[in-house]
Amino acid sequence: MPQELAYLKESASQTAGPYVHIGLAPGAAGFEIYRQELGRDMTGPNAKGERIRVEGRIIDGMGAPIKDVLLEVWQANADGHYAHPEGGGEVEEGFRGWGRVISDFDTGEWGFDTVKPGATRGRNVGTQAPHLNLWIVARGINIGLNTRMYFSDEAEANAADPVLNLIEWENRRGTLIAERTERDGMPVYRFDVRLQGEDETVFFDV
């Protein structure tokens, strides 16, 4: 008789539902309960690098912005190090590189302030272009969607990025590149995510 492998199965995902804010951002649900909500300050006070703002919307298959979405952001610091023992090196005291962001209930707009990450080491050799890792959950999304945001002012690094180059259809790579603009002297990157349609954003099975 063959031996059974003793592995467990990953728990199945279920939608975060419309009331995800109660658990992960209770202030937005309409009440205060915790000493501090997590994920509001992505970088801490000591982060090096360029201060930036990122804004966007998540747009559904009807072309409407999703107004009850929650995103999490995971990023390296300006040196390209993640705040993790396997993250590639030291980070500044207080730098976590993780953020939790919700869309506005009326407009679907979201935004957050952070620092621009550096290039990170590649899987085998070389480097990955600076990017933010995004994880998107909402009512109607059965399992969190993973995608990445790259920076329009990093054209050369983007052209050499091993992940962007995995995308067979060159015209789809642009769905992951946020456009840099400026507002009041601050760089603002615009990143709209489209869940369906001709310009559907690239999502990753990580």
Partner: peptide, 17 residues
């Protein structure tokens, strides 16, 4: 229905990210 991507996800071997 309106919140589900329709193209295949791109499978990614894990990097440091």
């Amino acid at each position: 229905v309106a919140r589900s991507p329709r193209y295949s996800m791109i499978s990614l071997q894990n990097s440091v990210s």
